[in-house]
Amino acid sequence: MIRRSTPNRTFARSAQPPMNESLPFAERVRASAQHLQERGVDALSALYDLAAARLVRFAVAITQNQHDAEDAVQSVLVRVGTRPSLLNSANCPWQYLLGMVRNEALAIARRKRRYSLLASFAEFVTRQPPDRVESEDQRQLVWRALRSLPPPQAEVVALKVWENLTFAQIAEITQTSANTAASRYRYALRKLAGTLATLQTEVHDV
């Protein structure tokens, strides 16, 4: 499960839109975007609670760094909060939001070129609940393998596996063709399989 951040007292959940939990995630984002348009920046907390964790997860796949990913998400959400029409007028607000985060994350990654793997791994490890410690080794290996992917492949994997998007939807976000997205995904999985096998061998040897 994705752990969400603890709500801050200063920004209590006072501006939640009437949300049907059974709605698909994309529809909930659309409702939240409409609410943001109607209520202004005060309603940003609802969108944050709904989407921030998933946006950060996607951004991490691109920036390969938690801090940069959070910076990217913060920058995008602030922009959306001050100009809600950006999101509300989009055909698919969730995909539009992912696209915004992708662009911001790529810009930050290009600007900083900061890939401090060990520091980032430590963050992930220390934030895991105690009952998940046994699966932590596996998770670390997968993350190390993911970070070995070039960002164009990593983002396709993130959107396909974590967001369950089709290749056509991924192509819209990454501004490529569906065939390119599909081939990047295949290459990425093949590479991940090889990297994971190597990493597991290394771990066992140690």
């Binding site: 964790a53 997860r57 991490v60 998940r132």
Partner: peptide, 10 residues
């Protein structure tokens, strides 16, 4: 990969 993604926290 899905499980690894679930481990990301904010």
């Amino acid at each position: 990969i899905r499980l690894a993604g679930d481990g990301v926290t904010v």
